[in-house]
Design a protein around this nucleic acid. Structure first.
Lengths: 175, 175
DNA sequence: ACACCCTATGTGATTTTATAACGTCAGCAG
DNA sequence: CTGCTGACGTTATAAAATCACATAGGGTGT
């Protein structure tokens, strides 16, 4: 819960390394802003339509460093005056996921903003079971044991789900 | 990894290696039988109760090399005269998963029999999106990029989900 | 401007997946 | 026998996701 207030102004502290990794304090307003700006830029560049609902959902996801369920998102959309039926949330999420702005955490049936916007990638996640924080790491599935097994039997990997559940550094400290 | 696997008996079945991996033809009656026998033995050894429902569910999972949803299992249980309400299936599945006789495929919200009974392990799966076959490979999550990332930030991994979706060798051939 | 089409959105209903809550019964320890 | 525990059965409900259909807005070509 370290993240849920938009702390103070200080718009000039990109806690680099920590930002990449995900657990660790950082200027959160900054990461929401840049996340939205990056998305907007890429949508313009690629002819994608970052509509109000989609933008709002992305903003909500960026504001948390946790996975949000579709229905949590839906509640907030309702509060903001958007449609209030499940398809509204699911369609926005589908758009964000398909275009790499967000990811689904299969283990939680929930969604997080992508922490590494840009090219396509196969993300890996660390999920804290105490505080629900989620951090995204890079992964190289084709290089590990799984990739080797796939090559050995001739399985053609199209997509991977890599999720680690455990305790985040903050929660370890608190014990 | 470090698995002392119990598969080493396989005297003259055609596809040893394939059996380990999962895609490929093999003596299927054999793998159901040995799967059940192994489970029974381990339950006796460890004081676990392999009750009729649990045994039947395990048998059903062993008969497929695919993930079965809880409700598919429930239908078959009903046909066999067991209780027909969801908790019946979920409780049996919980038992099998908790004790390592089966795994949940998060990506599919479905379940498969464990292909590597024996010690605790962190499985990795290959899921064919054409024919729904599922193969289990060994994984070494702590050694890959994810393990490195976790160590770097001080995240303590307790459990991992590793699932690759793609096309299995059989389906590639058929194209 | 107009008609047309395509995409996105809004809404109601339904399906699929999973859990809560509570009663019963069998096996076993005291 | 009594009381406990773990497994099972059933009703009900929650949570997650999709289907089907209607409407609205923004471009395009004419």
């Amino acid at each position: 819960m370290i993240y849920n207030n938009m702390t103070s102004e200080t718009p000039s502290t990109p806690a680099d390394n920590a930002d990449l990794i995900g657990f660790a304090k950082h200027d959160h307003a900054f990461c929401v802003e840049t996340g939205l700006a990056t998305a907007q830029a890429r949508c313009e560049a690629e002819g994608l339509r970052l509509t109000p609902v989609r933008r709002k959902v992305l903003e909500m996801l960026l504001q948390e460093h946790r996975a949000l369920g579709a229905y949590a998102i839906l509640d907030r959309l309702r509060d903001e005056g958007f449609g209030s039926q499940p398809p509204v949330a699911y369609r926005a999420l589908d758009f964000l996921v398909e275009n790499g702005f967000a990811h689904k955490i299969e283990r939680l049936n929930a969604f997080v903003a992508c922490a590494h916007p840009g090219g396509s990638h196969s993300p890996a996640f660390m999920i804290c079971r105490k505080c629900d924080a989620v951090a995204e790491a890079y992964s190289a599935p084709a290089k590990g044991a799984l990739g080797a097994a796939a090559r050995a039997v001739g399985f053609e990997i199209e997509r991977t789900v890599v999720e680690a559940e455990g305790i985040c550094p903050d929660c370890i400290e608190k014990r």
